[in-house]
Amino acid sequence: MAGALHFEDIKEGDEAPVTSHTLTRTDLVRYAGASGDYNPMHHDEIAATAAGQPSVFGHGMFSMGLLGTALTDYVGAGNVRHYQVRFSRQTWPGEELSTKIVVTSKRVEDAGHLVDLACTLANADGEVKVVGEATAVLPSRG
């Protein structure tokens, strides 16, 4: 819940709880509907294999969204001020995707009590799918 984590509660090197999720074709269909992204590579197995892909594959923005869910679970909904990722690999149905979010720095600025985080999403073999960084503003007890 928003406000649960305070600036004083964390230190550099702390890690957010890991979120793990096994990607299903249903996830892809649900994300297609919720986002309006109907690129057939993400839901039409026939079209995807015809295009030379082994199967349908996940939307990059689903990966960013899943990682974003772990991020807001940690820092609180509404507290993210900056969130940036690079999409490095495709995701495939059946893969277990796990988040890793590490506190890289803490700082106090006019904007508030800020925390910087390194964020990655990887499969069970450690293949990184999405790598990025985020900044959140946290409530302070000070």
Partner: peptide
């Protein structure tokens, strides 16, 4: 729901209010 976020602040205005928001916020992406 589509980004696997079950936080009630994104669907229930009462939960949003309890978390200190005047309205339901949207997920980051």
């Amino acid at each position: 729901v589509a980004v696997c976020d079950r936080n009630p602040v994104y669907r229930d205005p009462r939960a949003a209010k309890e978390a200190g928001f005047d309205a339901i916020p949207a997920p980051p992406t």
